[in-house]
Design a protein around this nucleic acid. Structure first.
Length: 699
RNA sequence: GGCCGAUUAGCUCAAUUGGUUAGAGCGCUGCAUUCACAUUGCAGAAGUUGGGGGUUCAAGUCCCUCAUCGGCCACCA
């Protein structure tokens, strides 16, 4: 053994060793208990980042369970990440002076496909460097034909059961990215905008969006507001910027009498609250803003103006007519923005596919209330229940090319929609054969929500039956809502079982000062650089050491360095024991143990450590388990016991050596789930090149 | 506005159901180098556990209150 442990000399070799031995290969063994984790599929549109290194928790669980004798399966997969990928790709195109409009739908799809295939391989290679015990041969991709088939089938099943419907509703739309979003994807940002007090017939009312006034279909006041009681129900004739128009006054509880003047204009096509009011009062929708972000013909002479210039123009014209009473310039409010490009999202009416979530939620809530789903850390269980209670119908239509195209066909003569895995041959209502497939693709989360069962279903029936439902869903708590909750809903719908028995949520990786990592702050740490410099084991254990499960991790280079030092420490302990073994060859005898008390204490301490370790691992207290071994091996075993027993070793006391070896190797095994490379390298020295600690287990 | 979390050494964080003298990593100070390891060892400095109140034989831990920070949700023109 060298005097230093050099990770780069071992890591690649050991990865190959594991795979050659097929240690990660999923198998069905009825005599063994299965343990299965589905990797949260990374987006196939970029490189590995530190967040992916948090999958170390999954690796720890898999390796630990394997060493406990279970039949494990950790399934690798990648996500096409529909809109996200298209966005990244379009930015890419822009650099080359191109845009998506230079391509046909098919060409664009194919080009992104090639781009994604390259990325897929890159990120896979990068993940492999972390030493993950994934079954590398069974890679899945959300766009695999077999997966797509299942996704389409689920959609059809939902449709047939009346849980999917098409409706013209107000949706969040990014006029720059050209697609709609679900409510979960909206990012609200605080903004300061002018609040205009405008004259509106006999009233004055406050609005930040005077440009939408052409889409007003009512005026509303609070039913209890005595100031306006007499007006309710009346129809007014008002002289507007583009001519006179008639408008009705309604009373609705959504109006806050304290805000502004207590009167609001109702613009159902461009505001969510107004839309709801319109539903209650049967008001018509009048769209004045198009999907291009410009005003349309309903806005008369303002047609063609972008929203913000239209606003300026309208305000200017209204000022001229004396219709602006006052402007409050420091009005602070929150607006929905596009989480990718950051621009303000427009509420726009659009025909889209929606999933009815209430019945799906009700089903799984019963099970969760029976406590048959474990959530760790526990506090997230409450959050999950709240999330389920607040789900609203899920808009799954996206106006992007990169994704799974919705299998819905419209009969061109009857304008009726059919959901079918293939293009229908004939409309059974009119007999016509002219169908047009919906241009839209699914929200990426619709395919991700099926990931645990869809991936396993594409394996053999035996594999599916053996490993499904999966054991643990381990992921970041930031996607509890967008992903985990939806997997529960759709997974239960499709398989009549919850897709996993347990949810383990990890926190976010932050920089050494606890700050969020971001490109603009310049504090982003590249995991590959850390691996190259300090080794994968050091990075992995730095993410776990001294943290609390579910909490954020502050990761500094110094911390990784500290763990690298630890790796070197255990390496040198091994080196010392190995050297002592060679000195104490066959000629050594079991001589009288002059340090009997010390070796006995050592064994006692070790046994108690082992017990604690087993309890901690079972209870998912990984950080504690690692911390205890760290403390013991360095500050008890090396600093104290080894120093005390050194003399005895030199005297050729082979029983002391045996005790030391036993305790040391016991610790190496306990460390293996956390630091797989170095422990395996040490294992090779003591157990031979052909043996893996994963096979030896904790025995 | 609602919910949740946090506040512990210079920095980043632990402390498993309340139980010895509150710990670690990094940093800092001093000493040690023909020793398995300087990616080391030994020794050390460093904390009124955010403030205040309460329960208890016993509180970092439980309760109340105040303050500050963070996250999620709702989202009023």
């Amino acid at each position: 053994m060298e005097s230093k442990y050099t990770p780069s000399l071992f890591e690649a070799k050991i990865s190959d060793f594991w795979e050659k031995k097929g240690l990660f290969t999923a198998q069905v063994d009825p005599k063994k208990e299965p343990f299965c984790i589905i990797l949260p599929p990374p987006n196939a549109n970029g490189s590995m980042h530190l967040g992916h290194a948090m999958f170390t928790y999954e690796d720890i669980m898999i390796r630990y369970q394997k060493m406990m004798g279970k039949q494990t399966f950790w399934l690798l997969g990648l996500d096409h990440a529909g809109f996200e990928t298209q966005y990244v790709f379009e930015k890419h195109l822009k650099k080359q002076g191109k845009s998506r409009f230079d391509y046909t739908r098919e060409e664009l799809f194919q080009t992104i496909w090639d781009f994604v295939m390259d990325n897929k391989d890159t990120i896979k290679k990068q993940l492999r460097r972390l030493g993950y015990a994934l079954d590398w041969k069974k890679e899945k991709f959300t766009m695999d034909p077999s997966i797509v088939g299942i996704v389409l089938q689920t959609f059809k099943d939902l449709f047939d059961k009346g849980l999917v419907y098409r409706a013209n509703r107000l949706i969040h739309y990014c006029t720059s990215c050209g697609t709609s979003f679900s409510d979960l994807e909206v990012q609200y940002k605080e903004r300061i905008d002018p609040l205009y007090y405008i004259k509106y017939g006999p009233f004055t009312l406050a609005t930040v969006r005077p440009e939408t006034k052409f889409g007003d279909t009512a005026l509303a006041v609070n039913p209890d507001d005595i100031r306006y009681k007499e007006w309710v129900g009346q129809e007014l004739e008002i002289d507007g910027l583009i001519g006179p128009f008639k408008i009705r006054v309604i009373a609705d509880k959504a109006v806050d009498p304290e805000f502004g003047t207590g009167v609001v204009k109702v613009t159902p096509a461009h505001d969510f609250t107004d839309y709801e009011m319109a539903q209650r009062h049967n008001l018509p929708l009048k769209q004045v803003i198009g999907f291009d972000g410009k005003l349309n013909e309903a806005a008369g002479k303002y047609k063609g103006l972008r929203i913000f210039s239209a606003r300026e123009q309208v305000v200017r014209d209204m000022t001229k007519k004396g219709l602006i009473v006052k402007i409050q310039s420091d009005y602070t409010h929150r607006v929905g923005t596009c989480y990718r490009c950051g621009r303000v999202l427009e509420p726009l009416p659009k025909e889209q596919w929606f999933i009815k979530v209430k019945p799906l939620v009700d089903d799984i809530k019963k099970i969760i209330n029976k406590r048959s789903l474990v959530v760790y850390p526990k506090r997230f269980e409450k959050q999950l229940v709240r999330i389920l209670d607040n789900f609203i119908d899920w808009n799954i239509s996206r106006q992007v090319v990169w994704g799974i195209r919705i299998p819905a066909y419209e009969c061109q003569s009857k304008k009726k929609w059919f959901v079918s895995l293939e293009k229908p041959k004939k409309c059974h209502i009119c007999g016509n054969c002219d169908f047009k497939q919906d241009e839209d693709t699914f929200d990426t989360w619709f395919s991700s929500s099926q990931w645990p069962f869809a991936t396993l279903m594409t394996e053999s029936k035996d594999i599916y039956n053996y490993f499904y439902p999966t054991s643990v869903m381990e992921t970041g708590h930031d996607i509890l809502r967008a992903w985990v909750a939806r997997m529960l809903m759709i997974g239960f719908f499709a398989t009549k079982q919850l897709p996993f028995q347990m949810i383990f949520l990890h926190g976010m990786v932050r920089d050494g000062k606890g700050q969020k990592m971001s490109k603009s702050k310049g504090n982003v740490i590249d995991p590959l650089l850390l691996i190259e410099t300090y080794g994968a084991d050091a990075l992995r254990s730095a993410l776990i050491f001294g943290t609390k499960e579910g909490g954020d991790v502050a990761l500094s280079e110094e911390k990784v360095k500290g763990m690298r030092n630890f790796a070197n420490k255990i390496w040198n302990i091994g080196r010392f024991i190995e050297m002592s073994s060679q000195t104490n060859d066959q000629s050594s005898k079991h001589i009288k143990n002059g340090k009997k008390e010390i070796t006995e204490n050592l064994e006692k301490e070790y046994e108690s450590l082992r017990r604690e370790y087993m309890i901690n691992m079972k209870k998912y207290r990984f950080s504690q388990a690692l911390g205890d071994v760290y403390e013991f091996i360095w500050h008890r075993f090396a600093d104290y016991y080894l120093e005390e027993l050194k003399e005895e070793l030199k005297n050729g006391n082979i029983s002391v050596l045996e005790t030391l070896k036993k305790v040391y190797l016991g610790n190496i095994k306990m460390l293996h789930p956390f630091m797989p490379f170095i422990t395996e390298a040490i294992g090779h020295v003591f157990y031979g090149e052909e043996t893996s600690l994963l096979q030896i287990g904790f025995k």
